[in-house]
Computed example of a mutant assay.
Amino acid sequence: MSIALFALGGTISVSGRAGGARLTGAEITAAVPGLDGLGMPLDVRDVHAVPSGSLTFAQVLGVVEAASHAVAEGAAGVVVTQGTDTLEETAFLADLVWPHEAPFVLTGAMRQPGMAGADGPANVLAAARVAASRAARGLGALVVINDEVHAARWVRKSHSTSTAAFVSPNAGPAGRVIEGEVRVLAPPPRRTVLPSGAVPARLDAARVALHCVTLDDDGDRLAGLDETHQGLVVAGFGAGHVPASLAPVLGALAERIPVVLTSRTGSGPVLRHTYSAPGSETDLQRRGLINGGLLDPYKARVLLRLLLAAGAGHDEVAAAFAEHG
């Protein structure tokens, strides 16, 4: 039994060497005290040494596929080190397609290895402990940073520099690593795993736009969007509202492509039947928009693109958001 560790790029791998060379997975793990106490070795592999902002859906799905092979060959769990900028999105993408009981754990760092108080080693050790823990089995993809265990569905990066940047505002941490022990306090429920086999080949044909609604927004940037994109996520005000003048624009788009309604606030749900004025959630749903539930706009875009790449129609998209949102 082993832990498969896939090292990508990001802050955790910044070497400070001339030419911008990245630390390898072996170099990252060599700086982590306590890994020999896991009771199983690390199988370290280097992939996609790029900042997380440059990762693609196809690359993330490729890492998930490689991790699946590692589990099939006997790995007890998986750790992925990457940059934190897109960690909440890559974690959710992995969670949607991860079919195994073995933990799939993502981590990174907010401080470069050469900085005072670098957090990478502690995060890698905590992530490896979670990946090796029986308590974390069956929980899907998890983000482990700052000794906190977050469910991929809930986690968000809430600060640009703090080592405590990752939070789960709608649910709180799923668990914590305390004195080296993994304590799962609020296990997230598992939802239907989505198929991913043919998805990478269809991603280019599944373009999904994200429109953040702003004050006095007339929707001029949405003109012709259905000719260039196959789906749209709307980040609305508050509980899922837009200016009254924007509602018919979105309704017209919803007649041609799936349009998912989310909230730009960062936490809380899109309501379903509390407000009824033009541009309210009730009005927008009546015009054909799909309620995104508790998913933030970024995660809603991940789910919608994955569904469209898998060939889902409008009804299947609506059903998936009813379950995952």
Rank of each mutant, 00 (worst) to 15 (best):
G236C: 09
E255Q: 09
R256C: 06
G251K: 06
V270M: 08
G238Q: 12
I257Y: 06
L215P: 08
P248T: 06
D217Q: 02
T214M: 08
R264N: 07
A235W: 00
S245N: 13
G251Y: 02
D216Q: 14
V259D: 10
P269T: 13
V234W: 02
L246Q: 06
V260N: 04
L246T: 01
P269H: 15
V270E: 13
V249C: 06
V233K: 00
L232S: 04
S263L: 04
G231L: 05
L253A: 10
H211M: 08
Q230L: 06
L250P: 12
D218W: 00
A254W: 01
D220L: 14
P248C: 12
H211I: 08
G251D: 02
H229L: 06
G238I: 03
G224L: 08
G268C: 11
T265Q: 05
A252M: 03
G224H: 13
G240Y: 09
E227W: 11
L250N: 09
G266V: 01
V213C: 01
P258S: 05
S263Y: 02
V242C: 10
P248F: 10
H241M: 11
A235M: 00
P248V: 12
R272T: 13
L246Y: 03
Y275P: 06
V213Q: 03
L250S: 10
P243L: 03
